[in-house]
């Protein structure tokens, strides 16, 4: 690990003025620092800031402090009751030990698990802009099939952010100059394009302080379905976060987000448009799946993800609507 300076911040104001990389749970950052994939010159320890509460909002939603650990968020009775998809996604991720340490803000910023990003001897435009991408033409079983670029085919590895995307979460931040802003999660992440090293809209020194969840959708079923190489403690090959409501025999609300497919938690309005107003059933589910994989591109080892996510979505929709296989 490269040497670095360390300072503990006692207030948000001091943290954003600190001029360093933030560290809280550290489960991803320290791992990458050991490999010298990340080499920050200064760490600002934000783990003691007063951002570890989950609070009620006037609209019936919740405000989650950025330092709430994954395990506390998953087990919170309000989250279980109103946002089961979020609890399920959190519980599908990592291990008990990691969930006890990993925070809400840090998990939003988890970096890709692309093998070539981790291997400092390999070419990686995300780690070293301009060096190339060894995943394209290499071993790319875990890589993206949607929203890729010639520079990067890495995926966002998270589960929690996929559920938050389906829940229309808003990310609240504070900038180095003290300004606060609220960014809808749909605007927070960036596709790789020509700058895969820039993964979100945060400015240098900008700190995530909270995540806001809007009031839950009434009478909706929630589901997080994760397909992975082993039953526990593995990243998603593909995952589906779904919130679906059926009224009078027709789909009244559908929010569907996907992990393992892209550089960000993926959501495509065309998938939901193919469902809303329709009767639950194979015809509508297949139309939604067709919309999801339209334009999908495999890179060899990950071609299987296209039919896999199609089937996973259809199976998820059967569960979400209570519509048995037809």
């Amino acid at each position: 690990m490269k040497p670095f300076d360390y300072a503990r911040a006692d207030t948000v104001e001091a943290a954003v003025a600190g001029g360093g990389r933030f560290i809280a749970g550290g489960t991803n950052l320290l791992d990458l620092m050991k490999l010298q994939v990340e080499t920050p010159e200064k760490l600002v320890d934000i783990s003691r800031l007063d951002l570890n509460r989950i609070e009620e909002r006037d609209d019936g939603g919740l405000t989650i402090g950025a330092l709430v650990p994954n395990s506390d968020l998953a087990a919170d009775p309000r989250v279980i009751e109103r946002y089961e998809v979020l609890s399920r996604a959190l519980l599908a991720g990592a291990s008990g030990q990691l969930r006890n340490k990993a925070t809400t803000g840090g998990n939003l910023l988890q970096r890709t698990r692309c093998y070539y990003f981790y291997d400092t001897a390999a070419a990686c435009n995300k780690r070293e802009p301009g060096s190339g991408c060894d995943a394209i033409g290499g071993f790319n079983r875990i890589h993206a099939i949607l929203g890729t670029s010639e520079q990067c085919i890495a995926t966002h590895p998270g589960d929690m952010p996929v559920a938050m995307r389906a829940l229309d979460a808003t990310i609240v931040t504070q900038k180095a100059d003290g300004d606060k802003r609220r960014v809808p999660i749909g605007d927070f992440y960036r596709l790789p394009g020509d700058t895969p090293q820039i993964e979100n809209v945060l400015e240098p020194g900008e700190l995530i302080t909270h995540v806001e969840l809007p009031a839950p959708v009434a009478n909706a079923r929630h589901l997080y379905r994760k397909v992975r190489d082993r039953a526990s403690y593995a990243f998603a090959l593909v995952s589906v976060a779904g919130v679906v409501a059926v009224e009078d025999g027709r789909i009244a609300h559908a929010a569907l987000a996907f992990g393992g497919l892209a550089h960000l938690p993926w959501r495509n309005p065309a998938v939901e448009q193919a469902l809303v107003g329709q009767q639950p059933g194979t015809a509508a589910f297949e139309a939604a799946a067709d919309a999801l994989v339209e334009g999908a591109r495999g890179f060899g080892h990950n071609n299987f993800k296209i039919p896999l996510v199609r089937r996973t979505l259809i199976a998820s929709l059967r569960d979400l609507t209570g519509e048995a296989s037809a």
Binding site: Y6, R8, I23, G25, G26, T27, L30, D31, D45, S47, S71, G96, Q97, L98, N100, K101
Partner: peptide, 13 residues
């Protein structure tokens, strides 16, 4: 009281 991975955290924290 909470189980964590001691390898993935800095002693100073």
């Amino acid at each position: 009281g909470r189980r964590i991975n001691a390898c993935l955290t800095l002693a100073v924290m």
